[in-house]
Design a protein around this nucleic acid. Structure first.
Lengths: 216, 216
DNA sequence: TTTATTTCGTTGTAAAAACAACAGACATAT
DNA sequence: ATATGTCTGTTGTTTTTACAACGAAATAAA
């Protein structure tokens, strides 16, 4: 049914079409539909599933102790979620997950995934690898982001980020995948203040840039 | 040799002493000693191992494009590291890891861990589970931390954190595991400014606290 | 082409944070 | 008991940021 979409996800990368259908069975995957506005998870839920969104769009949001709501994340078709809560000691989910379009998910019991079945589907260990790699990759990006965000001033945040990009692309001349507003959101600073700081750095001869093209 | 220490790590939790020795063999674990000041990893290294520190202390540090050094993390005995780089597409390591005491590590090839051996050690799948859970757990904590740090003002960061703790402990009266300096470091703000903000919030009747004891 | 729309830089002002410096409370060691 | 060190709160000053508002340039749409 959704094998074409699953095939393109990181979790099933490298797995044949035929195998996917077979595995959905083996893993006792559960397909669930949600109407726009439905809750997929509620804060306080205990989950032991990882989930792939195969249709629609979800919002991860969070209300604090005083009821102030904030948007944590948007999940698009093909993306996996819930993977951070697979560990037994994770405790209850701290966010609400809400469908903001008519959506469909496929949920996998984490224990089924981690326990290689007796019939031992050919690609089962690949799935485990994919899962681990996906989480590890996300982890690495989070650590880098924290590295930038932890800097006190906007300038230091920018230098941290730009330095990283230059090193990653191994060249002092490089392109960033953000426009100004996106970069500001990523670094959690005000756009105009950031733009201002960028221009100051340019005037001081520290960097050069044009749109998303930078030279250190 | 180091089975007692390994036994206490998250990676080997639930595995018997005897089994650990057997597995070190099966996994072809490699034990390496470092003198104080030695490099364990260098920026630019490509690694495909996860590593447990069994003796000593390591520093994760990073130089930016202009040579400014910053300390990313401290690794203590029993802790695992390198796990974020296990995915094939992770690219080169972006940090230096340096021994700041005489240290000993045990390194495991990630492919050996993820490929269940023919002789199928009894606890091999447990290790995989432990590995996944450890990374997932770290992931969850990073996401939460970013949630707090992403708030613009010190007050908002504090409220985000305190609200989380209250929800986690399911009680508006709770203790935090930090002193003021540690909390400030965690939220990446200035200690005195934070202390000041806490007191303002107290004076406004928003919160009560005494040392690390808080009431919302 | 002309008209929207988005993106980016710029400015001034008000608010907030960093920083430095110090004093009181508390605990620990001598 | 005294001294030492750590932790916390407090204050004033300086620096930085957020915010709002606007115009120019670039892009997309009509």
């Amino acid at each position: 049914m959704y094998t074409e979409i699953l095939k393109k996800t990181q979790l099933f990368s490298g797995v044949d079409n035929d195998e996917i259908s077979a595995m959905l069975n083996c893993l006792q995957a559960e397909t669930v539909d949600y109407k726009n506005g439905d809750y997929v998870f509620r804060e306080g839920d205990f989950i032991n599933q990882i989930t792939v969104l195969v249709k629609g769009k979800l919002l991860v949001q969070r209300d604090d102790f005083w009821g102030n709501r904030s948007i944590v994340n948007v999940i698009n078709s093909g993306e996996m979620f819930g993977e951070a809560y697979v560990a037994p000691g994770s405790g209850a989910m701290l966010n609400d997950v809400i469908a903001i379009e008519d959506s469909t998910i496929i949920a996998f019991d984490i224990n089924r995934i981690l326990t290689v079945c007796p019939s031992a589907c050919k690609f089962h260990t690949d799935i485990i690898k994919n899962l681990l790699f996906t989480i590890a990759e996300k982890n690495r990006k989070l650590v880098q982001k924290i590295g930038h965000m932890s800097k006190r001033s906007t300038r230091a945040k920018l230098l941290s980020y730009l330095s990283d990009e230059a090193k990653k692309q191994n060249c002092s001349h490089f392109y960033i995948p953000f426009n100004r507003q996106q970069l500001a959101d990523f670094l959690c600073v005000d756009r105009s203040a950031m733009s201002n700081e960028l221009c100051k750095m340019r005037d001081e001869g520290l960097i050069k840039f044009n749109r998303n093209e930078f030279t250190l």
